[in-house]
Amino acid sequence: MYEQRGFRQWVSRLLSLGLTKEQLLGISENKYSAFHQEAWIRSILKEVQRNRMHLHISLEEVPFFVLDTETTGFYPQLGDEIIAMAAAKTINARIQDFYFSLIKPNGIIPNQITELTGITNKDVESAPCLAEEMTKLLAFLENGVIIGYHISHDIIFINHFLWTQYRTKLTHRYLEIRAIVELLHGKGTFPTLDEALVHYSIHCEKRHTADGDVRAMTELWGYLLKELKNNKIETLYDLYNALSLH
């Protein structure tokens, strides 16, 4: 009933803007739902942008969202797709909430990706599509800082989807964990997550799975927070300033 009333209100608004009834004949309630979803996504991203936290907040108090995706390749513009997404809301490197979902792609998962991630085409047969899960992920991320190892890969895929579908992009702050590791240990150290995990003696039970990697990166983030504090890097401002000078 609520959706029907909303659809009628939406149609009335379009009519008030000058569209004729004939022009509205091809518009279905499904299209209304798509518009409604787009508006909701845009509102979340604008809210994040409006409510960015103060840079002088302690790193121990900042909600950091450790994010990871599994994809069928490296180039979304060439048709590679997200097949899994995971994120952990952390405060002082302690997990407060956790999100994970497999994603059903439009195409077939290549054999080499199945060998790497363990995700098969059968695993994703009943999984939700990316459009369904993207709204849940954005709601989960809320207002905080996104972090991850080689996080630009994940951001590129998410932004590609948001741009092609809604002509918008993530408005969250995000930080590259590798850059923070190199800030503490020198450039060129630990170019891969595996090398960083070995250095800190962190065991990743499910490597190359979105949820497994997020849990391992959260543990790594705990060590890095302590080292940052020992180096007098205690606020977001301190961290941004240190990274800009490194």
Rank of each mutant, 00 (worst) to 15 (best):
Phe7Arg: 08
Phe7Asn: 05
Gln9Met: 11
Trp10Ala: 11
Trp10Phe: 15
Trp10Arg: 06
Val11Glu: 07
Leu14Thr: 06
Gly18Arg: 09
Lys21Asn: 09
Leu25Cys: 07
Leu25Ala: 11
Asn30Pro: 03
Lys31Leu: 13
Ala34Arg: 12
Phe35Asn: 11
His36Trp: 06
Gln37Val: 05
Gln37Arg: 15
Trp40Gly: 10
Ile41Tyr: 01
Arg42Cys: 14
Arg42Trp: 05
Arg42Gln: 14
Ser43Lys: 11
Ile44Lys: 12
Ile44Glu: 01
Ile44Gly: 01
Lys46Asp: 11
Val48Asn: 03
Val48Thr: 11
Gln49Met: 10
Gln49His: 13
Arg50Trp: 01
Arg50Asp: 04
Met53Ser: 11
Leu55Asp: 13
His56Cys: 03
Ser58Asn: 04
Leu59Gly: 02
Val62Met: 11
Pro63Leu: 07
Phe64Ser: 12
Phe65Met: 08
Phe65Tyr: 12
Leu67Glu: 05
Leu67Lys: 06
Leu67Arg: 06
Asp68Leu: 01
Thr69Arg: 06
Thr71Gly: 02
Thr72Tyr: 03
Thr72Phe: 04
Tyr75Ile: 06
Leu78Gly: 01
Leu78Tyr: 03
Leu78Ala: 10
Ile83Tyr: 02
Ala87Trp: 01
Ala88Leu: 14
Lys89Ala: 15
Ile91Gly: 06
Ile91Lys: 15
Ile91Leu: 09
Ile95Glu: 09
Ile95Met: 08
Asp97Leu: 04
Phe98Asn: 05
Phe100Val: 10
Ile108Met: 08
Ile108Leu: 07
Pro110Cys: 03
Asn111Met: 10
Gln112Thr: 07
Ile113Phe: 08
Thr114Lys: 03
Glu115Ile: 05
Leu116Trp: 02
Leu116Ser: 04
Leu116Gln: 03
Thr120Lys: 02
Asn121Leu: 06
Lys122Thr: 13
Lys122Glu: 15
Asp123Met: 13
Glu125Pro: 07
Ala127Ser: 13
Cys129His: 10
Cys129Arg: 12
Glu132Val: 09
Glu133Arg: 14
